[in-house]
């Protein structure tokens, strides 16, 4: 299968001489959720800014759906790769939520009907029916974040990049984002997450790429990466608390990495049943 995003040997050196990413190779396929982890300044944001052409590789090549990012305009690439910035205030500026949703489509010069169709889809997905006439700046921060996400989704890009989506969100907001990421995947989108939120990744158990000092050091399923102590220590990452705890419980340790409370409970129940079976046999 052809990868949708293909990063081939890409390096990026900023004009001040700082190497932000070095020889990164990464293929992302349709319908994948990919989390990019790493400490601050490890090159996560620089890497994803290449996906919609905001940055061009100084070495190597990136193709998005077969198009080379070097040749295409950012506006064209942005219709394929939607990038939701960390701070929604950088993106929203129109007086009404509904106008905000239409803005991206208008930039792409779509017909009225098409804009309406796409915006309605986004409204449905994000359940924004009640806020359409509100000013985005009157909404609370998690609602504003959703408006920013919805305004990107209205363009209906194949890929959606979320830059630290759960930062500054309350528990409900985090749950909502988890739900949305699952929805995006159901609707056939590729989701790229930059995050420090290990619980979010634990819940998703998605493919996880670890960046460290401008280089890609790991690329695997979250439970495999979290089980690799060397990598976790190198990149300065701390797995979810439930993973750390279960790693230290001998009676659970059947070579499995637990990422969520539910999975641990499930396992305990199974163990318990088996014990009961053994007990009844004897």
């Amino acid at each position: 299968m052809e990868p949708y995003i293909s990063v081939m040997n890409v390096s990026h050196v900023y004009s001040n001489g700082v190497t932000a990413i070095k020889d990164v190779n990464l293929d992302i396929y349709d319908n994948e959720v990919v989390a990019i982890l790493g400490s601050n300044g490890s090159g996560k944001t620089t890497l994803v800014k290449h996906f919609n052409g905001l940055l061009k590789p100084t070495k190597g090549k990136i193709t998005i759906g077969g198009l080379s990012t070097k040749k295409e305009r950012i506006s064209k690439l942005s219709s394929l790769v939607g990038y939701v910035f960390q701070n929604p205030n950088h993106q929203t500026f129109l007086p009404k939520v509904s106008q905000e949703l239409e803005y991206g489509c208008k930039n792409l010069n779509m017909s009225e009907e098409e804009i309406e169709e796409r915006v309605n889809k986004a409204i449905e997905l994000f359940e924004l029916e009640d806020y359409l006439d509100e000013n985005p700046f009157d909404l609370n921060s998690s609602q504003r974040k959703e408006v920013a996400m919805a305004s990107i989704m209205a363009i209906s890009p194949q890929v959606i990049v979320l830059d630290e989506p759960t930062t500054g969100q309350d528990h409900k907001g985090c749950e909502r984002i988890l739900h949305l990421v699952r929805m995006f995947r159901q609707h056939g989108h590729i989701v790229v997450l930059i995050t420090h939120d290990m619980n979010l990744i634990g819940e998703l158990n998605c493919r996880t790429v670890v960046m460290h000092q401008s280089e890609k050091v790991a690329d695997d399923q979250a439970d495999v990466v979290f089980a690799d102590k060397g990598i976790m220590e190198l990149a300065g990452l701390q797995p979810p608390q439930i993973t750390s705890l279960t790693n230290k419980l001998p009676f659970l340790n059947n070579n499995k990495t637990y990422l969520t409370v539910e999975s641990v409970l499930q396992s305990i129940k199974c163990n318990h049943k088996e014990e009961v079976k053994i007990a009844t046999r004897t």
């Binding site: 800014k49 919609n52 905001l54 305009r73 950012i74 506006s75 942005s78 219709s79 939607g82 990038y83 939701v84 910035f85 701070n87 950088h90 993106q91 803005y103 991206g104 930039n107 792409l108 305004s151 990107i152 363009i155």
Partner: peptide, 18 residues
Amino acid sequence: REAKIVMEAQQARCLDVK
């Protein structure tokens, strides 16, 4: 610096700056 981020954020919404 903020202007640069805003510009990138709007480009991510298909604004053609060129």
